[in-house]
């Protein structure tokens, strides 16, 4: 047979060679293997479906809310925000403290705005307790949260207790993981 070159034939030949070559190149470059420990670590974070953030309505608390939202974005976690109203032991637990309640609600509303910016579901809890730490642990248990993200005050005045009492209680009694975020002092 006499050779006969046509433009269309040449284009088809090039398209054919490019397609097969491209397919083989793509096939030969699969993603790297994930080791068991890495997979566990990756999915351990993915398992945070309900995240609790205690807030005081201050900058470091709100940063903790933002941090929690980013932790929960991929898996669309629920963000439980709690403000613990510490009731002095001299008063009954259900005593009316309008100023404290207003402050708490304001802190929760601000936190809610942060959560909604991430398209996540906020759950707000104004909790009354003798100690903030005890109140947080109670909310964590009742809401079956997977992790608590706690922002703590940046200043440390050189005392023995670097964490503060609330943090100390949480680290001892929390029913789940605790992530502490401390800003530089």
């Amino acid at each position: 047979m006499q050779p006969q070159v046509t433009l269309l034939g040449a284009i088809i030949a090039i398209v054919f060679a490019t397609s097969i070559g491209g397919l083989l190149w793509w096939m030969l470059h699969p993603p790297a293997q994930i080791q068991p420990a890495v997979a566990k670590a990756r999915h351990a974070v993915g398992a945070f479906k309900r995240i609790l953030v205690p807030t005081l309505g201050v900058a470091y608390s709100e940063k903790a809310i933002e941090l929690a939202c980013r932790l929960g974005t991929e898996q669309k976690a629920e963000i439980v925000l709690t403000y613990v109203l510490e009731i002095p032991r001299t008063l009954p637990l259900d005593a009316s403290i309008p100023e404290g309640e207003a402050q708490g609600n304001e802190a929760l509303e601000r936190g809610k705005a942060v959560v909604e910016l991430h398209d996540l579901i906020p759950i707000l809890r104004l909790e009354r307790a003798r100690e903030a730490g005890e109140g947080i642990v109670k909310v964590a248990k009742e809401n079956e949260v997977d992790v608590i993200v706690l922002g703590i005050r940046p200043s440390w005045h050189g005392g023995q207790n670097i964490w503060g009492q609330t943090t100390d209680i949480l680290l001892k009694k929390a029913p789940c993981e605790v992530i502490i975020d401390k800003l530089p002092g």
């Binding site: 047979m1 050779p3 006969q4 070159v5 046509t6 269309l8 034939g9 040449a10 088809i12 030949a13 054919f16 060679a17 097969i20």
Partner: peptide, 15 residues
Amino acid sequence: ESSVIIFGFLFAWKP
């Protein structure tokens, strides 16, 4: 097979 197709389209194919 690729050679047959490429050479075929280049030198023998008549649209």
